[in-house]
Design a protein around this nucleic acid. Structure first.
Length: 112
DNA sequence: AAATTGACCATGG
DNA sequence: TCCATGGCCAATT
């Protein structure tokens, strides 16, 4: 099985523009529902990689989780560019924008 | 091999 | 409802 990191990266790549996922959601899709913090660490490591849509990842409250205000603002601008509107509390309505991957990266032939 | 990291999350006051 | 605390997990050092 591929390292957890590889799957997380792949999942983040699969988030379409205008949609977002939470850290916990990504961890769960990668197979470890409790490993949200691991997703955080990965994003730190990949922060220099522009090819990863890191800005489509927010915390469970629909808030930008970055510590650095500078980067946080950049993230908000990028999301707004993709059509996402923030509430007055600068939160994202999760029910509206949350992206839910169908099954896994590997599709299953038979279900139900 | 043990300790550290980290942009989280659930819970209790 | 908001803040503090503790648990959590896997990669990195």
């Amino acid at each position: 099985m591929q390292p957890f990191t590889e799957r997380v990266v792949q999942i983040i790549h699969s988030i379409p523009p205008g949609k977002i996922m939470t850290y916990g959601q990504i961890a769960a899709s990668a197979g470890s529902p409790r490993a949200a913090r691991q997703v955080v660490r990965i994003l730190h490591a990949m922060s220099t990689t522009q090819q990863l849509p890191w800005h489509r990842v927010v915390n469970k409250h629909g808030e930008i989780a970055l510590g650095d205000p500078d980067s946080a603002e950049e993230q908000r601008l990028r999301l707004e560019e993709e059509g996402i509107t923030f509430t007055l509390e600068q939160r994202i309505p999760l029910e509206q924008y949350r992206f839910e991957p169908d099954l896994s990266v590997e599709e299953v032939s038979n279900e139900e």
